[in-house]
Design a protein around this nucleic acid. Structure first.
Lengths: 184, 184, 184, 184
DNA sequence: CATGAATGAGCCTTCATTCAT
DNA sequence: TATGAATGAAGGCTCATTCAT
């Protein structure tokens, strides 16, 4: 791929991530193109339909997440702090907005996507391992499943009252959740 | 208002609540009219635009919630179980889907709505009172604010994997959250 | 159906026949709506996609044709003049432009259309009967099949040189064809 | 012109003829470029717009036709069989699909094209001469004009029912036409 | 009053044409 | 010179809203 084309592709993907996060995946394609500084035609050349853009953006989201989960495990020593760091990051990424990509059941067209399937599995596996280990180490309550934890990746609240930003609101909520997860 | 007109209004409002919950507030107006068994014209006669329908539906949601919060307080004896019951009900109602109505900052047109403002205040007050009382009774951790709790009313997760329904997923998440809220 | 709605439907159908004939079936929907004096929305309300409009217009074309074939048979006495009259009318209608509707093999979406199938069969049957009878009466050469004749319904030439209109050009061509069909 | 450039030009022209015949002159430019095995840029370098490509392809069509008309006259001896051979070839070439090029009145942009004008005149002249001669020789009915015959070059039918190909359908139709032309 | 028909603005997508590589 | 990337205008279709019946 030509250098300029690649750069445009990157712009578009970055723009999509931002815009999906802020306005949701049903945002007009034009909004994404504008944010990326390209024409709609260019966007469609790279991503022939909305699904393929969601798929690619979801892939980026999830591999970034997998990446940083692995980093966290390496850097934190224990599983529990790694898990906390991971879930905080998920919340910050507003992963819920991309849930269509995460959850095969939501968007029919995305169900069979092989890249997505692979990275979903990779993330699910990381979550399962962190969960098991944190339970083994006695830090995470024993009665939650890896799936409960996976749900928490997409935690959202819809309120940002007063001067509080969404990031602050969800961060506070996530702290409560983490306290709820901690073993007594 | 004539009896049949009133009945239509009630149908529409009920339909809107169901449909908003299931498909979100951006659902086509026709879908609501169909569900209510009336023509779109009738819908527009009662609710001149989408905002006013969201507003009215939000009002219903919130007053129902206030109602049942008061019932809970009366029936549960202590504030903490009343609060738990209230938050579980919020989750079940998928209140997040109606967040536009709840949160004055989300939908500009809804900001100044007097009915909504009043019922929002009523709910906020109830939450604040339950919060304070539950903290005073030593059941709720002391470091959360009434606002943290208010956020939790709109808690959502976007995943419903395997055979689990959304209701089950959010219920499990809410239990974790309630454990996180409980005083040690 | 309400009277005004019915009238609009008729306008649209009439407009479609004219515009299809002149510009072909790939003409912008807006062009048809404009010609009918309605908005595009109205057009789409009555005919949810292009296929259904082609189908309806094709049906009109073909039933009109069947009608007039029957009239011709009644009025002309013999089969041969009835056939000639019929083929002249086909040419004048520029039936070739509507061939998608006539020919199940051209437009996949139109293949299974039951109305169209029925009227196609009706026309095919009329042609077959006129053909057989004209041959029996010794006016039509014996070596042509009903299918050859059916082809001639869609006869087209693409030229309209000098001051000649298309109608004149195809009329002259059709006379030559009819001479070619006549038994010696 | 460099040898490779010339070769590209030839490829494109050949591709255009094939694709125009099969899909019509409104086919996407990319389809032609692909068929020619070149990029669109190359196509546009050689033919600055669609008209000039139609013009060039039309020129090829018509000079080929003129060529073979002359061959036919030389080889057939009499004018009538030459004319028949010529018209059969026109039908086989599906000349109707290129009618825009043939007929100055159809495509405004093509009206003034000098190459096209010249070759159109050349073909028209050949047709006129064959017509006159065939009439003089008593084989062609006397009441048709050279223009009637020219029309027949673009004869089309739109049906290809059952297993019959278009080529077979038009061939059969042309035989009827030729019978219609023959003097009694 | 209730209905659903009509309207047109808006988003989706394709493709002719231009232009950077 | 060849390529194919970028652009935006144009046409398809949906849906919020208005209005005739």
């Amino acid at each position: 791929m030509r250098a300029d084309a690649q750069s445009n592709r990157d712009q578009i993907l970055a723009a999509a991530q931002v815009v999906f996060r802020e306005l949701g995946v049903d945002v007009p394609m034009k909004a994404i193109a504008d944010r990326a500084g390209v024409g709609v035609g260019t966007l469609y050349r790279r991503f022939p339909d909305r699904e393929s853009l969601i798929s690619a953006a979801g892939y980026e989201y999830l591999s970034g997440l997998a990446e940083s989960a692995e980093t966290a495990r390496r850097e934190e020593g224990a599983a529990w702090p790694a898990l906390c760091r991971f879930l905080r990051e998920c919340a910050g990424l507003r992963l819920g907005a991309m849930a269509s990509a995460l959850e095969p059941n939501l968007h029919d067209e995305l169900r069979g996507d092989p890249n997505l399937t692979a990275v979903r599995a990779r993330v699910a596996d990381l979550v399962a391992r962190m969960t098991a280990q944190a339970q083994a180490e006695g830090d995470l309550r024993a009665d939650v499943t890896a799936e409960d934890v996976a749900h928490l990746m997409t935690l959202q609240v819809y309120a940002h009252p007063k001067g509080q930003t969404y990031a602050e609101a969800i961060a506070r909520t996530m702290e409560i959740v983490l306290d709820g997860l901690r073993a007594r």
